[in-house]
């Protein structure tokens, strides 16, 4: 079954490979609590923390949530890679037989 053209499937492959690499790495960085990514956590600036412990526990929770989210998204990109790779193969096989 073929539903993507050759260009779209190639684009899908490239984006998926990029996505897998970057999202796995980002997940890892979230997992090790990278400070550079703290601005991208869902912690609103208006929220007033009363003691550091509270802040740490919230940040900790958000860090692991984002780490797993990144890895899940990476898995979705693995799926995309498989689909677009299959499409690319189908397209290529068609052109080869011509």
């Amino acid at each position: 079954m073929k539903f993507c053209g050759p260009k779209l499937s190639l684009c899908g492959i490239i984006i998926s490979i990029w996505g897998i690499i970057q999202l796995v790495l980002m997940g890892f960085f979230y997992y090790i609590r990278s400070v550079a990514l703290i601005e991208d956590l869902n912690i609103s600036e208006e929220h007033k923390f009363t003691d550091p412990q509270e802040f740490y526990s919230t940040a900790d929770k958000m860090y692991s949530l984002n780490a797993y989210n990144c890895w899940i998204a990476a898995c979705l990109y693995i799926f995309t890679l498989v689909v677009s790779g299959h499409q690319f193969y189908m397209n290529n096989r068609n052109t080869m037989s011509l």
Partner: peptide, 10 residues
């Protein structure tokens, strides 16, 4: 990146 649940992965 800023989401509260695992639906954020999508």
């Amino acid at each position: 990146l800023t989401s509260e649940t695992h639906w954020g992965a999508i």
